[in-house]
């Protein structure tokens, strides 16, 4: 199995087309929507985890998306925590869908496991002191060539 997380940017005239359906049906790719922001007549952005039987099948699906004008970027974890700002309240642990932010008991310390983070960014606005941030550094988006 081959699993990667991608940011997909849909041009505004494509937002009414059933891309994801075709990914499943024709390319046999499993998907998990981590974030979706799609507005009719405007650019849409989705963060998807794509899982295929091998790297080639995921790449075939991506090639299909690109042929229809969808811009794709592979996502490394783009969320980071500023440990000087975080005051360890734990509010984020209630909303992180994958347990990348969790409490270590019994100390009740808030731990951020960047390896588990899928980049959904729900924690960014929830953090009362904005300790979680989306990195804008281009290094966080990995070029396709580096795909392992």
């Amino acid at each position: 199995m081959y699993t990667q997380i991608y940011i997909l940017r849909f041009p505004k005239d494509t937002s009414d087309k059933p891309f994801i359906y075709k990914l499943v049906k024709e390319y046999d790719i499993e998907f998990n929507i981590l974030k979706a922001d799609i507005l009719l007549q405007r650019e849409g952005v989705m963060i998807l985890e794509l899982k295929g039987s091998n790297k080639a099948s995921v790449e075939a699906g991506l090639t299909f998306l690109k042929s229809l004008g969808v811009k794709t970027e592979r996502l490394a974890t783009r969320i980071r925590r500023d440990d000087d700002i975080c005051f360890q309240c734990g509010a984020c642990t209630g909303i992180c869908p994958v347990g990348a932010l969790y409490l270590r008991r019994p100390e009740m310390e808030v731990i951020f496991d960047a390896e588990k983070c899928t980049g959904c960014s729900l924690c960014v606005p929830i953090c009362p002191v904005r300790a979680m941030e989306l990195a804008i550094d281009r290094d966080w988006v990995l070029p396709e060539e580096t795909m392992a």
């Binding site: 005051f87 360890q88 309240c89 734990g90 509010a91 984020c92 642990t93 209630g94 909303i95 409490l103 008991r105 100390e107 009740m108 310390e109 009362p128």
Partner: peptide, 20 residues
């Protein structure tokens, strides 16, 4: 980390910092 509300297990999160 969790409580029972209306017979269902519900995850909990604090807003108050215990380490601090």
């Amino acid at each position: 980390g969790s409580i029972i509300v209306n017979g269902k297990e519900v995850p909990t999160a604090p807003l108050s910092s215990l380490p601090k």
